[in-house]
């Protein structure tokens, strides 16, 4: 194969939709919509997650909404089920999201099991995924880093598997790279690390492992300078992807190998 220095044709494909950026970002925890927009622009992300909530009916008629700052024709919206603790709640939320977004059916399913850890309840997640897929949704699914559950979610028909790297919002980074590698090696759909990334090197490690993308929110939004961190994450994702595509050298535990010639030494 010829050496190539461009990855322009290296696209992330999810349920038939093609994306240049492998960084997916959340829209929560920013100071205001202006900062949200600036950070997302700096990240280069094309897919943004949103939450579905009751409208604040007491608001002023002209109060700006998220959708005005992030027009749905400019970004691919990924409505989530954050805060749902049962399959019924998650299904209800995503059906409302589909109505809200004019039939848009690409969604992020997450069913939580515990308010302190926000760890996924994989039993409820599998139940919800089955019903949503039957109902015509393209389901990107947040899950634990259990390779068997990941395979079951793919078998059901989920269009992307999104294991946690560590707990949501924790910034603890990639805690179990081996499990992620097993999931990646066995998956035939995109594997996207969702949750736990804290800084740029975490995102790079995920991509070097062979992840197809990374979804993050807090690492950018709660950085001291969110816009600069968004830019760093963009580079980290690209860098990790290129390193993965380039194929790293083998590690040699006991044999050093000089980079300079061993012949012609001055004696």
């Amino acid at each position: 194969m010829a050496d190539k220095i461009s990855n322009m044709n290296d696209k992330l494909v999810i349920a038939g939709h093609s994306f240049q950026s492998r960084l997916l970002v959340g829209t929560g925890k920013y100071n205001d919509f202006k900062q949200t927009r600036a950070a997302i622009d700096a990240s280069g992300s094309q897919i943004v997650t949103v939450a579905i909530r009751r409208l604040n009916l007491g608001q002023r008629p002209n109060e700006p909404s998220l959708l005005e700052f992030l027009p749905p024709d400019e970004f691919t919206y990924l409505p989530n089920t954050a805060g749902c603790y049962s399959s019924d709640e998650a299904i209800r939320t995503l059906r409302l999201a589909r109505e809200l977004l004019d039939g848009h059916n690409l969604v992020k399913l997450e069913v939580l099991g515990d308010p302190n850890t926000l760890y996924p309840n994989v039993v409820e997640t599998i139940n919800a995924a089955k019903i949503l897929i039957k109902d015509g949704f393209d389901v990107m699914v947040y899950t634990s880093d259990d390779p068997i559950i990941a395979r079951q979610l793919e078998d059901i028909g989920c269009c992307a598997i999104m294991p946690l790297a560590s707990l949501i919002g924790s910034g603890m980074g990639i805690l179990n790279p081996w499990n992620l590698e097993i999931i990646i090696d066995n998956a035939n759909v995109p594997v996207i690390v969702d949750a736990g990334v804290g800084t740029a090197s975490d995102a790079t490690i995920a991509m070097e492992l062979g992840c197809d993308g990374v979804l993050m929110n807090t690492a950018i939004a709660l950085a001291e300078n969110p816009i600069l961190m968004a830019s760093a994450m963009k580079k980290a994702i690209e860098s990790g992807r290129e390193a993965f595509s380039a194929g790293r050298m083998n590690k040699k535990l006991y044999t050093a190998s000089p980079s300079s010639p061993i012949k012609g030494l001055i004696k």
Partner: peptide
């Protein structure tokens, strides 16, 4: 309730209505 049918849908006493939108989230 599909937005196509708003004109013809009547709400009655005791109905429970949810009106939702998209907000920032991860």
């Amino acid at each position: 309730i599909s937005k196509n049918y708003f004109a013809g849908i009547y709400f009655n006493d005791g109905d429970k209505i949810e009106i939702i939108g998209a907000v920032g989230g991860g």
